[in-house]
Amino acid sequence: MLEEPILQVRNLRKQFGTGCMECAEVETRKLEKNFCKNCGTVYACQDISFDLYPGEILGIVGESGSGKSTMMQCLYFDNEVSSGEAFINTPELVSNNVFELSAQKKRSIRNHVYGMVYQNPVHGLKMNFSSVGNIAEKLIAAGNRNVGQMEATSKKLLENVHIPLHRMKEEPRNFSGGMQQRVQIAKALSNNPPILFLDEVTTGLDLSVQANVLDLIKVIQRDLGISMIVVSHDLAVIRMLADRTIVLLNGKIIEEGLTDQVLEDPQHEYTQQLVYSLL
């Protein structure tokens, strides 16, 4: 099958700290989990490589501190990588390592190619803007200038995520967690991004709202064909959403495969532990 990935990530590394003689060499370093006891450097992401294909949902699982969120922040340029490459397969960006682009170009990728939904809506929304204003902000960043058109688009997006239109002028800080999360998803979708990052988007939501958000994500995949990376520590969420899954431990990929295969025939010791812990 001649199919090109939409996003290729190669040897993504992120460390917090300068490193020392003891931990500088990848092959010989001895870490306590991902932490160098000698100098206190944290190796949050260690040589993470994967491909994301058009229209697929890729699940990332792992315990707290395994590097899931750091990886997402690096991909979305919230955090600078220590080293590594990422290639986006669009005509304008092909064969450019996007980590090495100028700040201006990175901003343009965020505005036109990427969408991000954070675990905490505070990071993705301006809580003192109206909901419709939040979406307009993203639309303006993506180059829209027609006010009427922007309002129509915002309304449609909010409707799609089931926010009642009579509340669209309201600030998200007045909303419940689930509603805030749905406004954030509407905002992330507003620039029609081919790639969407979802970081623990259902964590902390009650089951009923979680069902809503999961359904919304599936519909987005089916109707818009958007490629998504879904980070979650909840295996049930990953099982429902992801076609393929990567398991992270201490900043490294320890296992990857079809989601049902990873859950029913886990190969790595840690993945087995994780699956045995499933309720």
């Binding site: 099958m1 199919e3 294909y53 697929e56 089951l207 009923s208 979680q210 069902a211 809503n212 999961l214 359904d215 599936k218 099982r239 429902m240 076609d243 393929r244 495969g257 079809l258």
Partner: peptide
């Protein structure tokens, strides 16, 4: 490859077990 297997699952090979595991509230 995993991607090819996903394609086959979608269009060519079906699997039925005695357990039902589906999207909630659908």
């Amino acid at each position: 490859s995993e991607r090819q297997m996903l394609y086959l699952r979608k269009y060519e090979i079906g699997y039925v077990s005695q357990f039902l595991s589906v999207m909630p509230r659908t």
